[in-house]
Structures are given as structure tokens and as C-alpha cells.
């Protein structure tokens, strides 16, 4: 009896395995993405028509508006995902439980991990290959590399201002400040755009500097990046004025505190070239005259 059971299990495992290997050889036709920047990548490599489900936070490109939403990092709706009959599900690398749930049923999973620009380019190539758009993926990657090279060349040789990129802060005051640290795509985009990161020595994606740290590090330029739309001009003015209490910081003294708005600035995807361009224009306006 036990021997027979073992045989059965082995057979089932073999079946699963062959099914899985069969599936991996195929191009994904129905893709569910739980990661907004990967959704953006899918559309950029021409796989938009294959996307059948997206996360609750997707808002780019506009074509995502009509697609079914299936949750996100904390609340993936597995039932709904299964009902969409995907053959590829893109999850966060930390969603291990979810990953095994799909692989067990023979659905392929691409675990996305957050990292630097090279990781973004690799994700573009991977996603393009999995959806049968390898050439388009390569084209997008080459396009971005060309953009980066052009910006590097444009700002090359100019003095690189010490820059702090702020990614979060309490409204109207200098509290709860989050800034980009010395690793990750934002840090790399800043370096490409011709700025020296004041927190380059902090080997983390985000740091929470105190007021004292910000005074001591004395950035020459402060760039706040916000994902949403720009607020009304008086609110904008008030938010910029919040920095005025750090009067000795060169960025404040020389009026080089910039508040930038736009989802592309914080999306680790195909629009990073555009983000680098925006930052470069802020850091080196004279290079774009």
C-alpha cells in the first residue's frame, strides 16, 4: 500500500514537473502583475494586450484604467487571480507564500526585486522574454541606456552639486524626512543627472536624517520628489518655505530647493531616463540652454 502510494506521488510529481517545464517553454499569453512598475514595463515592451490583471495601485499607462485589479503586496486576491486564468503572475520577491501557491498549480511566477538601475534593465529583459517580446525589450533597454549616456555627456565636466533627494516629509514642517540613501535606482539616477548624493556613504535605500544631520551635511541642492500631481501654488510655496528654518544650508540660502511632482520620478521602469533628464535640468539648467 505504502509502496503504491509512493509510486503515485512520484507519478504526480513527474506530471507536475513535465507540465511546468512545458509551460516555461511557452510564451505567456495572460499576465497578472501585482507590481505597478512591472505593469509599466509590460506595456512598454508591447505586452500590454497580454495583461489581464493589475495591482490596486497601478495608474500608468492610462490603458490600465479598464483592467481588473487584484490587490497588491499585502492583500493579493488569489481567488480573483486564479479566475483570470493567468499563465504568468508577477509578484514581489518577498511574496514567497504566494509564489509557491501559483507554482504548485503550474502557473509561472516572476518574482520582482527592487534594486538599482541594472536590476530594472534586467527586469525589462526578463519580462520581455517571458511575454515573447525579447527584441522590444532589448530596444527599450538600449533606448534607456542611450538616454542615460546622453545626459551623462551633457552634464559631464560640470561641477557636481552636493544633493539631497527627499522622498517623504510631513506636510508643512521639517519632520519625518525620508531621503534617498547611497543605493537604489534614485541614487543612481541622481548620479547620472550630475549630482553628488549627500548620503552616498549610507548604504541603504532610504535614510531618515534629523535636522542636525541635514545642517551638517549641508546639501547645495535639495530635490523633493512627489508621486502625485502638483498642489495649488500657495500650498507649494508653503511647502518650499518649510525648509527656510535651515538657513545655513546652501540649498536654502541659494534658493535651490526644488519640489518636483510626477509618478515617473519614483517608478523604477522605462521612464527612468525621463526622470534623470528632469533631475539634470534642475541640477544643471545652464547645460540645457
Amino acid at each position: 500500500m505504502a509502496a503504491r502510494q509512493k509510486k503515485l506521488i512520484a507519478l504526480a510529481a513527474l506530471l507536475c514537473l513535465s507540465f511546468a517545464s512545458h509551460a516555461s517553454a511557452q510564451v505567456a499569453r495572460r499576465v497578472v502583475s501585482l507590481v505597478p512598475n512591472v505593469t509599466e514595463i509590460l506595456f512598454a515592451v508591447g505586452a500590454g494586450a497580454q495583461v489581464v490583471g493589475i495591482s490596486s495601485y497601478d495608474d500608468f499607462p492610462p490603458e490600465t484604467k479598464s483592467l481588473p485589479r487584484v490587490g497588491a503586496l499585502l492583500d493579493p486576491d488569489t481567488e480573483r487571480i486564479f479566475s483570470l486564468r493567468p499563465d504568468l503572475v508577477i509578484v514581489y520577491g518577498s511574496q514567497g507564500e504566494l509564489e509557491s501557491q501559483f507554482t504548485r498549480t503550474g502557473i509561472r511566477v516572476y518574482p520582482y526585486r527592487h534594486g538599482g538601475i541594472d536590476d530594472v534593465l534586467q527586469a525589462i529583459r526578463d519580462v520581455a522574454r517571458l511575454t515573447g517580446h525579447t527584441a522590444d525589450g532589448d530596444r527599450v533597454v538600449r533606448g534607456m541606456q542611450k538616454q542615460f549616456a546622453a545626459i551623462r555627456q551633457r552634464v559631464g565636466g560640470r561641477p557636481r552639486p552636493k544633493t539631497m533627494v527627499v522622498i517623504g516629509r510631513d506636510a508643512g514642517e521639517l519632520r519625518g524626512v525620508y531621503a534617498s540613501g547611497g543605493v537604489g535606482f534614485l541614487h543612481e539616477v541622481l548620479e547620472i543627472a550630475g549630482g553628488d548624493d549627500v548620503f552616498a556613504d549610507q548604504k541603504r535605500e532610504a535614510v531618515q536624517p534629523s535636522n542636525e544631520t541635514m545642517i551638517v551635511r549641508a546639501p547645495q541642492v535639495i530635490i523633493e520628489v512627489h508621486a502625485g500631481d502638483p498642489p495649488a501654488s500657495q500650498v507649494l510655496e508653503k511647502e518650499r518655505a518649510a525648509w527656510n528654518q535651515l538657513a545655513s544650508v546652501p540649498a536654502v540660502r541659494n534658493n535651490r530647493v526644488h519640489l518636483l511632482y510626477g509618478g515617473y520620478l519614483l517608478a523604477a521602469g522605462p521612464r527612468l531616463g525621463q526622470a534623470a533628464d528632469t533631475l539634470a535640468r534642475v541640477l544643471h539648467p545652464e547645460a540645457f540652454k
Binding site: E173, L174, R175
Partner: peptide, 26 residues
Amino acid sequence: YAADFTQAYRTIRWLMGDLDVGSFAP
């Protein structure tokens, strides 16, 4: 649960408490 990641993270940070008020006004 309804907030996005950065907001949820900032909320958690607020709950830890912070004395760095940055000016005498508060």
C-alpha cells in the same frame, strides 16, 4: 491597510515617537 507603502511606513514611524521638532513653534 488602505494606505500605500510610503504612507504606511511614515505612519509606523510616527507611532515610534520623535522629538526632532525642528523649531520652537510647535
